[in-house]
Design a protein around this nucleic acid. Sequence first.
DNA 1: GTCTATATGAGAATGAATATCACTTTCGAT
DNA 2: ATCGAAAGTGATATTCATTCTCATATAGAC
Lengths: 158, 158
Amino acid sequence: MGDVKREVARAINLMSDNDLRVTPEREAVLEVLAENIGAHPSAEDIYLATMERHPGIGLATVYRTLDALERVGIVSKLELGASGSRYELNTDVGGHFHHHLICIGCGRITEFNQDLLEHLEKEIEDSTGFQITDHSLRFYGYCAKCREAAKGGETSRS
Amino acid sequence: MGDVKREVARAINLMSDNDLRVTPEREAVLEVLAENIGAHPSAEDIYLATMERHPGIGLATVYRTLDALERVGIVSKLELGASGSRYELNTDVGGHFHHHLICIGCGRITEFNQDLLEHLEKEIEDSTGFQITDHSLRFYGYCAKCREAAKGGETSRS
DNA sequence: GTCTATATGAGAATGAATATCACTTTCGAT
DNA sequence: ATCGAAAGTGATATTCATTCTCATATAGAC
């Protein structure tokens, strides 16, 4: 789902605009990212998927590509302590104001759209002098599936 | 600032309550944590400071202690992708509803108290079926000091 | 096509965090 | 107070994600 070609073309334009060279390796990575929107793949996941499309690509190149794409805003990196980071293509639609719901049962990551933080950021800047350039809001807990799977246990909790 | 002895005593009680053994090593780590509230030290920082109080302690013990203390809620671990995690004693006062302002200039971490998320959590649980057990809200940007130091550059940004 | 800065692949290196294992200590039961 | 099983410790090896190194290859401006 989603227009893979369109997203890749858009990303390639952004690369040129930012003086990043467009190489076959980077295109392959972009295609993988565009085909996996919402999946939040790890660098390893992306590496393995890119291998099928561009055999011989090195893991280091995947990391370098993701890093370069992140620096110019084409991808977002979601840093999860241990267990490595996850990456996602910043789609045209969708905007940047989504936060993550991270299931501590199965590890699945889903998204939640919300703009509420704008107001809070202004309040923080005024009261602390801290100039905010980015934020990260995550919720940890159990997704519907994992709750289902755990049925039979205690349902209420004080 | 802050009552180190009181915080350590409180933490030790919590340890007993949670079947964690109270060892000299753990007490030393707790003292270091209580003396560094607000400093957000890394495991290495804590290790070095604890060494002065309890020479011979191993780095692994510091990690194990921090991990054990986190599991029972005595300390909070702030995971920062690379550059390792930071730790903080959960003080009696202060509560758990503070978020972090992380300066990408100097790395300093400060706090911001806010309760706004309660309402949002309920909304998410109702609309997605995701049962939230914890959350993490961080703001990245430049602290007042770093902004000061950078004076003279561009002030506005589209 | 030429040229030069940039990208790539392979594998070594890094660094935070964890595992291993023999030894020691805590703390409840006696 | 002492005993003993369970838990904790120190030293160090190990893991694993990520980055670095360096020789080679290629993109893209001219």
